[in-house]
Design a protein around this nucleic acid. Structure first.
Length: 955
RNA sequence: GCAGGGGUUCCCGAGUGGUCAAAGGGGCAGGACUUAAGAUCCUGUGCUUAGUGCUUCGCAGGUUCGAAUCCUGUCCCCUGCACCA
């Protein structure tokens, strides 16, 4: 019986008792050090996390069984505001939150504990460790650490001092996404910090100041296309919306109230002047834009949104479809103009200005595209959006500025754009404004805006030397998948300076030289694999936080200073200090950092660059493994959104091993997969089937001791070794699917075939069986241990050596022979089917006439000399005058479908072989079989037999 | 836009120059076992045929004795783009 729920616990306990996951330095053995990327401590594990972990554990178990001293470490990431805001919700007794945690089985005491950020982090990180154990991952949990622990923070302080020493920290102004209440937040689709708007993009608007009525009074318009200033014919605003006057120094600006609420975070010392007023008050008046310096009229439109930009839009009807429709709507309706008190004739007189010449378009792209797309009104917003993108794309990439554009005439749009923008900014006629493309709300539900920060700290990832050095090193690394390895240099080149610390009340490490800043979550998780080598000593109480000084880290990580001095200075036992240093030298560099695909563009690049920046080359990481996601209904399974059950209930339903096998076998690690109940069931059944199959073998009394090895036995051993070869090669290349195909499917089939063919050699069966069970230790370790003990092995699978290939047992010709049997059976079946006979009484098998064996060998030899068919035929016809027809047919065929000499046996051999499988064939076809040499029969089928091709007669 | 990935037989998904009508699994069909269901086992699953031949790996061309695999063009789909490990 496959009682996985019982034996999973049993073996986990056993591993724990025998300290299998515990890894200590052992210079007599080669080491292998693997980590998986930190998990953010923000809630429960879900089955998606188990994908990467299962891969990591399989690799580690393989290495372990190959004699490596393996260290698999894990920790938690808690910097940022995740834990803070979640704990707050518990503290505030938010009913949904409380309900949720209660449904997950948390007690009153648990809830009390997680109502503070620290308690929250402790509670969940302890749960993570339990989860690792319950899925059988052999993690060295003595080293577990969290980024918010005081000892870890000492490590981060050290790291930032190193970066500063190397001039890789710089300060400059920055426009950060920030909650108006909480400070900087991350705007990203995972919405870790947000309650809404994770998909928003940061957009750069150019705000142009248009002179209006008085000296130093300006109407502000926002544009993404500053190069189109030459084509302005008017500006748009909404007659119904409210606008305000804003005082900035001695200037007065007119824009929407919403704009004021956003720009005040980017420009200092602004204040509102007087009351707000309706846009209609401005209609029909004139403004003067910079650069073109001519008056243009203010007109109404329906598409001005006070929430976008300044709520006022400059109009370039030649190139902006919406502007064209807006103008067109007015120009063809006197009624509409009258409504706003506008002079119809003036409006009709407004002429478009050709400013950009681009591929596929004439002077006025906006007009053309509106005609082509049959857009008839400014209200047709959906089509206008598409039209805008199309015109913009063409204009930006293929456009050239026209002759009306002064000194910019003839320039490409992409060049002119920046020049015109810069000129307006330099002359104080414009400034830059950053905005989000959609509404974003913080987790605290306050709005998120873009805020200017003057002295923001950055890590200088743009540093040329650092970038080049890293790119150069990447070439030497083992990185999977290959597509990521290829893309990584691009990512590194693209990687710009990164704001590395924020001002706010988050969990994390303060910058040692500027405590108003807290290191941001990405930046404090780049060098951490090396810290697992220290956290062990801290967790064991052999070193305390105060002793983790700069001098200490310099010594243990960089080998600076000498142990006597350092030990004295920080008052520590010199043995401990030297042991840490020795551990570092032994375990580092890291062999594999394994993480999900989301890390490709942020974590992995920073992980690499920081290592390159801080350490010598012998400490650079050796490998990266990226796994894709587990998705449900098209989206990533997330901790908060649910979709599948908890990892505990899924394990109960399907077994841990089935889940692990599912991840290894369902697809390559480099595609997203869906956690489907049907698939899980299949894998569970597959394991159960194998389990019962082996149980039956163990209890069977059909097998015999002390038998001489038959060809079939030797084929069986050969086959296993061939499979084993593939398994080992696949594991070395980290190809789980190929490995598990062999272990759980193909070899299972081979084994069944062996038994079906009548294999009964107990010694052979059990020697192979034991090894097969060991191979299962990589992916389904619990099942493997259970079977291993059932088969009478007292040593744990994890403690055994992975089976080695016995090359001498591999016999390809036996394999061919067995394949031929299968092929023959399949051919026979086909023939039986085609015969149309209801019932088969007898099958006759004809072995080819003996002269043909000689003849075939001769022809094959001849074909190596010449391919001239005619010549060969005439030669052999004279040699075999009695078989002219036979000869002239066989030769062209042999040319077309060449046979190797090795495949031509003798008649006697073929005959004896058929005799040897006669019983098996009779059993398979449930009829009597007669084996006849072709010379002894007159049947035409007897003549059709050739060497390598048995003649069939079914009747 | 920048950078990258991909289109395989009913489905998932292997497969990078011949041994490929294309692994493995699933589904479906038939059979065995069973009182029955489930599980398990066997067989089949492009068309055709006494073991043959033909057509197929997004589409169109090309290289080659030979292409799912290489090249060119083309259509379609997907991912990331920054403070989120």
């Amino acid at each position: 019986m496959y009682n996985y729920n019982d034996f999973e616990k049993k073996w986990q306990t056993k591993w724990k008792e025998e300290n299998i996951g515990v890894s200590n330095r052992d210079e007599t053995k080669p080491k292998f050090f693997l980590i998986w990327a930190y998990l953010t401590v923000s809630g429960f594990h879900h089955v998606g996390h188990m994908r990467g972990y299962s891969y990591a554990d399989a690799v580690c178990r393989f290495k372990r069984m190959q004699g490596y001293n393996v260290l698999l470490s894990a920790g938690g990431h808690a910097s940022g505001n995740g834990a803070v805001s979640k704990a707050l919700k518990v503290k505030e007794n938010d009913s949904d939150t409380i309900e949720y945690y209660k449904s997950k089985g948390l007690t009153k005491e648990n809830l009390d504990q997680i109502s503070t950020p620290e308690g929250f982090v402790d509670f969940f990180s302890q749960m993570y460790v339990k989860d690792y154990i319950s899925y059988g991952y052999l993690v060295d949990d003595r080293r577990f650490t969290v980024t918010t622990y005081p000892d870890y923070q000492k490590f981060i302080e050290w790291q930032f001092r190193k970066l500063k020493e190397k001039d890789l920290l710089v300060q400059k102004p920055y426009f950060a996404t920030a909650c108006v209440k909480c400070g900087p937040v991350a705007v990203d689709p995972s919405e870790m910090d947000l309650s809404k708007g994770g998909n928003a993009e940061k957009q750069e608007f150019t705000i142009i100041k248009l002179k209006f009525e008085k000296e130093n009074q300006f109407i502000l318009v926002a544009t993404l296309r500053p190069e189109t200033v030459y084509g302005q014919t008017n500006i748009w605003l909404s007659s119904e919306e409210e606008y305000v006057k804003i005082k900035s120094g001695d200037e007065t600006w007119i824009a929407s109230k919403d704009f004021y609420e956003k720009i005040k975070y980017q420009v200092d010392n602004l204040e509102l002047l007087g009351q707000s007023f309706k846009g209609s008050e401005l209609l029909g008046k004139y403004v003067t834009p910079p650069i073109i310096n001519r008056e243009i009229i203010i007109l109404p439109s329906s598409f001005c949104d006070p929430k976008i930009g300044t709520g006022i839009v400059t109009s370039v009807p030649s190139d902006a479809p919406a502007d064209w429709m807006g103008l067109y709507d007015l120009q063809r309706s006197k009624e509409e103009c009258d409504k706003y008190n506008l002079d119809f004739e003036t409006i009709k007189d407004i002429k478009l200005i050709p400013i950009i010449k681009s591929k596929d378009f004439g002077d006025f792209p906006a007009v053309e595209i509106c005609e082509n797309m049959k857009i008839n009104s400014q209200k047709d917003t959906e089509k206008l959006e598409i039209a805008k993108k199309e015109v913009y794309k063409k204009g930006y990439h293929t456009g050239v500025m026209s002759e009306v554009c002064d000194e910019y005439a003839g320039l490409k749009v992409e060049v002119a754009k920046d020049k015109i923008k810069q000129k307006m900014i330099d002359e104080n006629n414009a400034f830059i404004f950053y905005d989000l493309s959609e509404e974003v709300l913080c987790r605290c539900s306050s709005p998120v805006v873009i805020k200017r920060i003057d002295d923001q700290w950055f890590i200088k990832y743009s540093d040329k030397q650092l970038t080049e050095k890293t790119i150069e090193y990447v070439k030497e690394m083992s990185i999977l998948p290959d597509s990521f390895k290829k893309n990584l240099p691009n990512v590194l080149n693209w990687f710009d300076d990164r704001a590395c610390a924020r001002q706010g009340t988050w969990l994390g490490t303060k910058l040692p030289f500027d405590p108003s800043y807290t290191v941001e979550p990405i930046s404090d998780s780049t060098l951490y694999p090396i810290y697992y080598l220290v956290s062990l000593y801290v967790n064991q109480g052999r070193i305390n936080v105060e002793q983790l000084t700069e001098e200490f880290f310099d010594f243990v990580f960089l080998g600076k200073g000498n142990s006597i001095e350092v030990a004295k200075n920080i008052s520590i036992d010199i043995n401990i200090l030297e042991n840490i240093r020795k551990d570092v030298i032994y375990w580092y560099p890291l062999d594999i950092n394994l993480g999900g695909k989301e890390h490709q563009t942020v974590h992995f690049p920073t992980f690499l660059m920081n290592h390159v920046a801080v350490f010598e080359k012998n400490f650079y990481p050796k490998g990266i493994f990226v796994n894709w996601w587990v998705v449900s209904n098209g989206g990533k399974i997330s901790k908060s959104k649910g979709g599948v059950g908890s990892i505990g209930s899924e394990a109960e339903k399907y077994s841990v091993d089935a889940i692990r096998l599912f991840y290894a076998n369902i697809a390559s690690p480099f595609v997203d997969i869906t956690f489907e109940e049907e698939d899980l069931k299949t894998y569970k059944q597959r394991l159960e089937r194998i389990f019962v199959f082996i149980e039956n073998i163990i209890s069977s009394n059909e097998f015999k001791e002390d038998l001489k090895e038959t060809e079939l036995d030797r084929w069986f051993e050969s086959k296993f070794n061939l499979r084993l070869q593939t398994i080992i090669e696949s594991m070395e290349k980290i190809e789980f699917k190929a490995a598990t195909d062999e272990i759980y499917f193909n070899f299972y089939n081979d084994f069944s075939w062996y038994l079906k063919r009548g294999g009964i050699n107990k010694k052979v069966i059990f020697s192979v069986l034991k090894k097969w069970i060991l191979t299962m230790g990589l992916f389904t370790p619990h099942t493997s241990e259970e079977l291993n003990s059932l088969v009478g092995n007292k040593t744990l699978v994890v403690k055994q050596t992975f089976p080695e290939i016995e090359i001498e047992k591999i016999n390809l010709s036996l394999d061919d022979k067995e394949k031929n049997v299968e092929k023959m059976i399949s051919n026979l079946r086909n023939v039986i089917k085609l015969s149309g006979l209801e019932k088969i009484n007898k099958i006759s098998l004809f072995v080819s006439e003996s002269w043909k064996y000689v003849f075939y060998s001769e022809v094959i030899a001849e074909l190596e000399i010449t391919k001239n068919v005619g010549q060969i035929i005439s030669k052999f016809i004279s040699k075999y005058p009695d078989n002219k027809q036979e000869v002239s047919k066989a030769i062209p065929k042999l040319l077309k479908q060449p046979m190797s000499k090795e495949n031509i046996k003798t008649q006697e051999e073929d005959y004896n072989f058929l005799i040897s499988i006669k019983d098996f064939l009779e059993l398979t076809f449930n009829t009597s079989i007669e084996i006849i040499k072709a010379e002894e029969s007159d049947n035409e089928k007897a003549k059709s037999a050739t060497p390598g091709k048995i003649g069939f007669l079914v009747e």
